[in-house]
Design a protein around this nucleic acid. Structure first.
Lengths: 219, 219, 219, 219
DNA sequence: GATGAATGAGTATTCATTCAT
DNA sequence: CATGAATGAATACTCATTCAT
């Protein structure tokens, strides 16, 4: 049982971010590099990686296209950085969210909620890039990013496997995780929390319910 | 109640296909145009639309790049044709599958099964293109294709709404359809029926179960 | 003793050229490719390989820069082709000149005369490129061209070694060949036969004399 | 007749160098400028002027590329300085070598020996630059450097003309000098005195012999 | 219909040079 | 003097599209 106020976030997003910046694992959003990565994520999501030119990227941060290459050696390196930093940040956020939860059911709820937040919140553009621009990454870069994804995915499998062992989950943890990946990342194409309607917590509840894991669900 | 043999498909895929070919709604797979669209779907899925050159497309069907333009006015028209014909075929197939089913629950099962088949079977490459290359389509073409998707989607909503009215479904039909869209299309990235393991029917069962709609489920 | 008229060339340059063209070893000078290589040789000699742009090359043959790449995959391939075809042609010409001569002394004279002709005649620009743009060739291409040069050089060493064995030559054949290479290729920077003065045959005589191998020389 | 020890150099290379440094005609090799010019000569010879970047140059002397421009206004000025200082130094060395010799035959021998030393010794890299990077120099700079070369060349022509008048040389002094220029500068591509074999003095002897000017040669 | 050479606008990347700190 | 981020013009190369044959 924790003593934090009920409606404060279980984990401080900013604290995590600053700790990652200090360790040079993600760029400071206020630095030239950080601003570029944010604009790149937006452009890559909106137009696609191939249709975004380095001139577009440069214009978005107000520099000349040649100057980009002081920060990144190639255009692809920008794509990779968007993906790597996004995974690093979201892995850290999820880990903290999970650790703050007491039961496995609550841990899973924290993961779902955090993933919905990562997809539909600040890092949403970058998450969409991660899903839709994967093939634009060279194979060596794909391998690098996959290693980071493995860490991220192991958080999910750990919790789902525990729930399976508890008997709370009937289906195969791997299959469930994959269905969730698809269902949750697809929300980026339709879910608009800012338009009112379903809140993010409400959506999380619906997903838990679909899995037969809502609080009231005695199944 | 139908009198077809138990292991024959409820609807004859080939019959539907030939009827669509006769109406000039999809290309004969043995024609030059049909072969090109099949190869285009494969290449667009494997390399992405932008990274596939018209030379690649021409080489895949054994002609010169200039000759492509006797069949299609632009490269984008090829992408559009892949999408349009795929939706037309799958809409027809699903409509038939749905009509062959008696109850709403069976209709939904037929839709899920048919969508899994379209994603992981013969039209899988084209379905992946539909999901991942959407932004490569010009806005006017997107509008055209969207009209066709609306027909396709209305099939789903019709059944889900009926189930909701029956009380068999608790969640919002729109939300459920969208979650299903994500979960099912994502199977293209991981599900390999040919490797043994989970069969397509088994997967369909799991999805029905997740929705609390399996036969034995009295909920 | 041969029966050809005294002032006809011992070997027919055009016959050799056409035979090489027929074997696809050098390009027809009237073809698009042949014209490009001739202009490339001129530009590379005048401005250097690096300072010659593909736009310069294209302009010189009256096409757009993009069209160059229908004939050659890279700019470097053009440089290589200039070198390879030049060596092939000159090797064939020298072999014929040598074979038409009776004594070793006459063979050497034929080689010197032919090399002066190749440096100061039609292929002069390409020969200058061979000397001065060597480092602009990638290492793999250098290796390819070196193999061809070895054939060319072996013609010289064969004759010089025979002269050494005859006692007509005192110095080391390798050293003599290298001094000759330098002295003869340097003529490209100063020798202008068209301005009158020393004729090419006169220059050949002077070189033979320097080697103590003039006809009258009983040494 | 001179009184210096038999195996001491006829002229003191260091004395000449220091006198030129004092007059600000060449840079002190230990100064920042001198070190840069030495590295530039090496890089220009190895990679060519165009393919050597100012970053390469800066890195070779351990500074940042922007700092180069405190020493030289442009990259081309570096190339010019390499050439100018090399000619100045070698002209002074040859003049001294020539003046230390008594007969014209000995003077010529001294020139050949000194040029071989300049090509294959300490200034070899810069001499190669002088030959192979000539066209990278702008025309105004070429004119400046040509004036210095004229002084250098006049030393040779003076001696060769005297030998011609003595009857010791049959061929045209201009032709002989040009053949020698080619033959001697080409040694940079093949002659490796450090590998044993032919010594520099031995090579000088061979060249004198080729000209029919060896001591024993009574011709 | 098919060809394949040509187009020309577009792309990522390079690099000498500048200049505020 | 030194730095290093920024510039901006230039570069080789790509590729969908055209069209005479």
């Amino acid at each position: 049982m924790s003593f934090r106020p009920l409606d404060a976030p279980a984990v401080n997003h900013d604290t995590i971010l600053h700790s990652l910046i200090a360790d040079n694992l993600v760029s400071d959003p206020d630095s030239a590099r950080g601003r570029l990565l944010r604009e790149a994520a937006r452009l890559f999501r909106d137009k696609g990686y191939e249709r975004t030119t380095v001139r577009d990227l440069a214009a978005a941060v107000g520099i000349q296209s040649g100057s980009l290459f002081h920060h990144f050696r190639t255009k692809e390196e920008i794509l990779k950085a968007v993906m790597v930093e996004t995974i690093r940040l979201n892995t850290a956020v999820m880990q903290a969210a999970m650790e703050a939860a007491d039961t496995n059911r609550e841990k899973l709820r924290a993961l779902i909620s955090a993933e919905l937040e990562s997809i539909n919140g600040q890092t949403g553009e970058a998450m969409a890039v991660l899903v839709f621009e994967w093939r634009s990454l060279s194979e060596p870069s794909q391998a690098e990013v996959l290693k980071l994804r493995d860490i991220y995915e192991s958080l999910w499998l750990e919790v789902l496997t525990a729930l399976k062992e508890e008997g709370a989950l009937v289906a195969d943890p791997f299959v469930v995780r994959r269905m969730l990946t698809g269902a949750l990342s697809w929300t980026v194409t339709w879910y608009r929390p800012e338009r009112g309607g379903l809140s993010q917590e409400g959506l999380t509840d619906q997903v838990m319910a679909m899995l037969g894991l809502s609080k009231a669900d005695s199944r």
